[in-house]
């Protein structure tokens, strides 16, 4: 997971993430093992923007039942990156 493409998985598309765009904050699913510094670098490389701040959070997978069997969807990491004023990311390409 050295490459930027491997760190940044895909954008989070939800009401909340759309709202955050208004504050110049963009939300992505990222590799579980990546840290803030790596995320910052990857975003800057991929989208040619300047990142001011990165916040990350671990999202626990949801419990899913199938009859008697209890399973879990994978744990994931979400990162919200704040960009320098004026920078933008078009994240709608690959929906």
């Amino acid at each position: 997971m050295d490459r930027a493409e491997d760190i940044i998985l895909k954008p989070v598309i939800s009401e909340k993430s759309m709202e955050l765009i208004g504050e110049n904050k963009y939300t992505f699913w990222v590799d579980k093992r990546a840290n803030k510094v790596q995320i910052k670098k990857a975003i800057e490389e991929l989208f040619d923007v300047k990142v001011e701040k990165v916040t990350t959070m671990n999202v626990k997978g949801k419990l899913k039942r199938f009859g008697r069997n209890v399973g879990r969807t994978p744990n994931r990491k979400k990162a919200i990156v704040k960009l320098r004023e004026g920078d933008k990311i078009e994240i709608f390409e690959g929906l």
């Binding site: 598309i13 009401e15 759309m18 709608f92 929906l95």
Partner: peptide, 17 residues
């Protein structure tokens, strides 16, 4: 549309969907 409550998706998302 997944990720949005009914009536809350932005136009672009709707068009893509």
């Amino acid at each position: 549309i997944p990720g949005f409550r009914k009536g809350k998706a932005p136009r672009k998302i709707l068009e893509n969907f």
